[in-house]
Write a protein that binds this DNA or RNA. Structure first.
Lengths: 381, 381
DNA sequence: TTGAAAGCGCTAACAC
DNA sequence: GTGTTAGCGCTTTCAA
């Protein structure tokens, strides 16, 4: 049983194929009578359309490709979910690609997406420099926006949160909660957010006069297992930091686990923070204090940029949304500065308003500036 | 800068477009000399191909659509990951669709995928009967395989695990661990696996002579929050079951949380089991005893079926893979039947070999039967 | 082995 | 407002 084509619908409705196309797409005016006949014919024949043919003709596919280092990492899972939902509102569909932290796999996906004529690409590159060539090549052919992480030396759109601000939120909070020394557990990966988080940690501990040591900077990968191992080493070593700052929630959950195994009390003996606010951060024991990223906003901005960027070249937008600190029980209570009531501590997550937004450089590309919640700026004027 | 076409490559290489096509695709013989010239020309021009044009001509897109009730549910996330990887090995790409538990959204996705001429559809339908029309319509046009769940009244391929067997594994284990009464917490959703798990629970408790009550069958949704609420109600009520069997791990994690909140010891006061073996099942305190599904195998079979099913009509394969019981600390230790050493209890997950495979009806479609790990069978002879 | 040419199904000019 | 027609870029007969 062959697929129904527009020609068959046209024959049945007694009109030309062009008219059927116009009636069905609604792009151009068609008389009510004819529209009725076409709709009827299409319905009777079970006409379903052929997006491929349409795409070839219009040179638009209404598809977007998304490439993430690991679908299974809960942070990227939510990002994918948010992007899928945002795209659905626009009638676009999502090609999902998992680069498995492998630059070569990633490059293959990008080539493949380009060949498929996707209208745009959303990528969280797996490597800060290794991903550059493939990302640049793709961006040369197709609107591309980087999410969360971005590679060195490219000038594509980017949207995410400001990791420096996040680390300030985290360390200010820890300091206020009494921590005077801190360790940092992260990944060896050399991507932008990993590096910015470490840099932020160094700057903020220094600013606040908090002690740290080389042996307290532990780099492995973004996994529960690594967090557990690293914390195990830390707890076995001499001296304990007041706080362990983790570059993502998976690591932090591993750290909590290690503390439990070693009989170290959190937050009494050591405070622990994560990053991303994945679903399970609320569920651990104790609940994990962490940095919340506005994933829906990030996704929405990315999708909007792709739609906008279609024609425009030349200027890249950098949109840094405000992170929030989500305070739970893995950090010590902060003495209230004023007479404000403490609320119900430890019950639900208490999001603490984050920060202003960082404006990078240059001037806004679009004149329509939104609600002050973020700013976009171009890196080339 | 316009995209490079095959015609430009042809001109540069001094050959016809047909020859370029043959050289690049490798489908037909081309002289070594010409192949070299074509490759060179393509490289110099940065030819990237146009999958859309190719797809229109060949009427194959090398794409597969996947529709799941919720991307964010960790079980489906892993399934998506497994499918993505399996597809990548075949050079196909994945359209990911989230139906958000909504039959109308799901139907829209299926229509859209059909219009996009995907080569196959993999779906975990969100409703046992409500999804039927859309699934049937899609299956009439495109090879379709249902994963995990399946809808009533259709005759498409299906692959998953046998929920009845899973419940037998769970209840045998609980019984051996001393449980003589059990509650069941699940979802109100009327899809096949939800219903089969409940039916299995009923049958097995009856078979083992374990007590249960209407008030101990609690139906809500697949979420941590529901598990927590349901268990809260249960723990507040009169009498406590020896065990709480949950229809998925999210619910079970919520139950564990409620037990902790209510000071109920697991497994001493009540044993708890989950279903799916999501990543976080290993991480809870105590670790969750649960049913493991061979997700990679499920995905691989689904992808294989789509590839096979291309031409074949008429007979549908039902592939039920063996579930495994993953024993952790949320259930009581089972007294060893023989002199076998206990191993290191509670350390790593201890998968217990599951069960034989259920053969539904009819006879195998493919003659090539694999390693006895599963059986496929056709429901129509 | 290679080239010429006919379309895949649709939409956008261009006429009327 | 509607029909005619020319492709979108590729693959695949059919001849040579």
């Amino acid at each position: 049983m062959h697929r129904v084509t527009i020609a068959q619908v046209a024959a049945r409705a007694g009109v030309s194929t062009a008219t059927v196309s116009r009636a069905l797409s609604g792009n151009r005016p068609v008389s009510a009578e004819i529209r009725r006949r076409v709709d009827a014919a299409a319905g009777e024949l079970g006409y379903a359309g052929n997006t491929i043919a349409s795409a070839l003709r219009r040179s638009r596919t209404d598809t977007v490709g998304m490439v993430v280092p690991s679908i299974r990492n809960p942070f990227f899972t939510s990002l994918v979910e948010s992007v899928e939902h945002a795209l659905q509102d626009q009638g676009k569909q999502l090609f999902l690609c998992d680069s498995r932290q492998d630059v070569a796999v990633e490059a293959g996906h990008l080539r493949s997406l380009a060949a498929r004529q996707v209208d745009g690409i959303i990528i969280s590159p797996c490597h800060g420099t290794g991903s550059t060539p493939a990302v640049e090549a793709a961006a040369a052919a197709i609107p591309l926006v980087q999410l969360d992480r971005h590679v060195a030396g490219t000038n594509t759109d980017w949207v995410g949160v400001d990791d420096g601000v996040s680390m300030r939120l985290v360390l200010d909070h820890l300091h206020a909660a009494g921590a005077r020394s801190a360790a940092f557990i992260s990944s060896t990966l050399t991507n932008s957010s990993t590096e910015l988080r470490l840099a932020g940690f160094r700057r903020q501990t220094e600013r606040l006069g908090m002690r740290t040591r080389d042996a307290w900077i532990l780099l492995g990968d973004y996994s529960v297992e690594w967090g557990r191992r690293a914390a195990g080493d830390l707890l076995a070593g001499p001296g304990l930091p007041d706080a362990i700052v983790c570059a993502d929630d998976l690591i932090a959950l591993g750290v909590l686990r290690a503390c439990r195994d070693h009989g170290v009390a959190v937050p009494a003996d050591v405070q622990v923070t994560g990053y991303d606010d994945i679903d399970f951060a609320a569920l651990s024991e104790p609940g994990l204090t962490t940095v919340g990223q506005p994933r829906d906003r990030i996704a929405a901005e990315a999708v909007r940029l792709l739609a906008t960027a279609a024609g425009t070249g030349a200027t890249a937008a950098h949109i840094a949304l405000a992170p929030t600190l989500v305070v739970r029980e893995s950090t010590a209570p902060v003495p209230p500065p004023g007479p404000a009531p403490a609320g119900t501590p430890g019950a639900a997550a208490a999001p603490v308003a984050g920060s202003e937004v960082r404006i990078r450089t240059g001037q806004p590309r679009s004149s329509r500036s939104e609600a002050g919640a973020h700013q976009e700026s171009s890196s080339r004027p």
